[in-house]
Computed example of a mutant assay.
Amino acid sequence: MKPYLLHDDELKELVVKIPGWEVNSEQIQREFNFANFIEAFSFMTKVALICEKYNHHPNWDNVYSKVIIRLNTHDLGGITNLDQTLASEINNIFDK
């Protein structure tokens, strides 16, 4: 998948396409909460495998049962279709 920057109209649509994610002009971000550290770490492991598939890696933080993921495409200087795809796949993992 070749990444391309999303235009303003596409960025506005992201709120519907990737529920739960906060969208601004620089990145998309979502906080995920779990019952404990093991569940949070398990989620992060699943996300890491998806990230490797796309060779696209998040900025993320984990404190005990909370995981915060921030996505953008540094090489292109903003939010791309690749960030949208990755966010959708992360939502699918979380919703299972």
Rank of each mutant, 00 (worst) to 15 (best):
M1D: 11
M1A: 14
K2Y: 09
K2M: 07
P3W: 05
P3V: 11
P3T: 10
P3R: 09
L5I: 12
L6S: 06
L6D: 07
H7V: 13
H7G: 10
H7D: 14
D8T: 14
D8L: 14
D9E: 15
D9H: 08
L11F: 04
L11W: 08
L11T: 03
L11K: 15
K12C: 05
L14A: 13
V16S: 13
I18A: 03
I18D: 04
P19H: 06
P19Y: 05
P19E: 04
P19I: 05
G20C: 02
W21R: 08
V23N: 11
N24I: 07
E26W: 07
Q27P: 00
Q27S: 12
I28E: 09
I28K: 05
Q29M: 14
Q29A: 08
R30P: 01
R30G: 00
R30A: 00
E31K: 13
E31P: 07
F32R: 01
F32Q: 01
F32A: 01
N33L: 13
N33I: 13
N33T: 15
F34E: 00
F34M: 02
A35E: 15
A35T: 13
A35D: 13
N36G: 08
N36K: 11
N36D: 15
N36H: 03
F37S: 09
I38F: 12
I38T: 08
A40M: 04
A40V: 02
F41A: 13
F41Q: 03
F41D: 08
S42C: 02
F43W: 05
T45M: 10
T45Q: 12
K46Q: 13
V47Q: 06
V47N: 06
A48T: 06
L49F: 13
I50T: 04
I50H: 09
C51W: 05
E52D: 14
E52F: 01
K53D: 15
K53F: 09
Y54L: 11
N55Q: 14
N55T: 07
N55I: 01
H56R: 05
H56M: 02
H57A: 04
H57L: 07
H57E: 07
P58E: 08
P58N: 07
P58Y: 04
N59A: 11
D61E: 10
D61M: 15
N62A: 06
N62M: 02
V63M: 10
V63S: 10
V63G: 07
Y64W: 14
Y64L: 12
S65W: 06
S65T: 11
S65C: 08
S65E: 13
K66R: 14
K66P: 02
V67K: 00
I69C: 00
I69R: 03
R70L: 10
L71R: 07
N72E: 09
T73Q: 10
T73A: 12
T73C: 01
H74L: 10
H74F: 14
D75I: 01
D75V: 02
L76Q: 08
G77R: 02
G77P: 09
I79D: 12
I79Q: 11
T80E: 03
T80W: 04
L82T: 15
Q84A: 15
Q84T: 11
Q84R: 14
T85C: 05
T85D: 12
L86N: 05
L86T: 09
L86D: 02
L86E: 07
A87C: 12
S88C: 02
E89C: 08
I90P: 04
I90L: 09
N91H: 00
N91W: 08
N91G: 07
N91C: 09
N92H: 14
N92T: 10
I93F: 04
F94A: 00
F94Q: 00
F94T: 01
F94V: 00
